[in-house]
Design a protein around this nucleic acid. Structure first.
Length: 306
RNA sequence: GCCGAGGUAGCUCAGUCGGUAGAGCAGGGGACUGAAAAUCCCCGUGUCGGCAGUUCGAUUCUGUCCCUCGGCA
């Protein structure tokens, strides 16, 4: 089987990936496929900065806004969706263009994950409740007894990874370390052209601040309020950056300015984490965000050269 | 001009009874295998406003100058 050509756009939040993707799609008869973990929620198009209706009309877009804010999709499940969608786009004779900001998802798509089965939700909830009760350090010690290699790798305060390692062991009888030593399950083989959008320019912080202002003007607060009404018990989709701050504003804890300030701060910290991830991604060609022509030339050369 | 209060990290400040200094915020770096917009880890040399004096030693005490902010003129 020959490798499936795809373009992958990566870069921190607010760098102009949406526009760059549309330009490439128009130039190469492509279709945009989302790999962002938050732009999947239909209740939150504004705060998650999904492509607008107008933008989506300019070329085919897939895997945006298709889930209610109460749902979750694991990285593995999401990778399977992307595989299916990329194949379908290809069958239609189009070039798949993967766009997003979630480094783990991109890795799951391109390199695969360990073939660990899905863990029953009830078991996961039990372990998480226990973690809340006894604290991560206690569970870390328990992990050290069954899987010392994982315990050594995972920080004693990292409740997410500690509970993950414990639930995998509890559900499968095998340690995470054991699973990770196994070959990853992968989808189709991809020939990926990786394009990074680099914002090292000084205007970036201002750009993020402007984006938040625009989201608020366009009704982000009302959007989050609506979603919160629809999911009164709290929903995973409402835990994202922007939502969390707006919810605190709606509860009266923060005034709008304080919420926006926090929102910006959290967005900047997130952008930094994204760059830490993407910087070490191999084989990325970096471009200025508006250098659409340069990106197109690269894609053209790589598609021709194979 | 006079009186008072200050000048210490990008910002707000603490502190050193004389032994060249540290918090918060901001900022930076990193990790990452099904919650990832998540979850964690690490990072502080700065003419302590300038100059002089006392002292073994001054950011700390003294003098003087400069600057800022009040108040009075």
């Amino acid at each position: 089987m020959t490798a499936l050509p795809v373009v992958c756009l990566l870069g921190a939040t607010g760098t102009g990936k949406t526009e760059a993707a549309i330009r490439l799609a128009q130039a190469f008869d492509g279709a945009v496929i989302n790999y962002d973990s938050r732009q999947i929620y239909r209740d939150l198009p504004l705060v998650t900065a999904q492509p607008t209706r107008e933008e989506q009309a300019r070329c085919p877009h897939h895997l945006y806004g298709f889930l209610p804010a109460g749902a979750r999709r694991s990285a593995g499940a999401y990778a399977r969706l992307v595989h299916a969608m990329a194949a379908r786009v290809r069958r239609q004779g189009r070039l798949p263009i993967l766009v997003g900001g979630t480094g783990l998802y991109l890795r799951a798509v391109l390199s695969g994950l360990a073939p660990i089965p899905d863990i029953p939700a009830a078991l996961r909830a039990d372990i998480q409740r226990e973690c809340d009760r006894v604290g991560p350090h206690t569970l870390h010690a328990r992990l050290a007894a069954v899987d010392p290699a994982s315990a050594a790798r995972i920080a004693p305060a990292d409740r997410q990874r500690i509970t993950r390692a414990l639930e995998v062991y509890a559900a499968t009888g095998r340690t995470l370390t054991d699973w990770h030593a196994q070959e990853a399950t992968t989808g189709p083989e991809y020939a990926a052209v990786k394009i990074g959008l680099d914002i090292s320019a000084h205007g970036y912080a201002q750009r993020l601040a402007g984006r938040i202002e625009a989201m608020v003007e366009q009704g982000a607060v009302a959007e989050v309020a609506r979603a919160a009404t629809r999911f009164p018990e709290g929903a995973w989709g409402l835990s994202g950056i922007g939502c969390a701050e707006i919810l605190r504003h709606l509860s009266g804890e923060l005034d709008l300015d304080a919420a926006k300030t926090l929102w910006l701060k959290n967005t900047k910290a997130y952008a930094k984490r994204q760059m830490t991830w993407f910087r070490k991604e191999s084989g990325v060609s970096w471009f200025a965000p508006d250098d659409h022509q340069g990106m197109a030339l690269l894609v053209q050369a790589r598609l021709a050269g194979g």
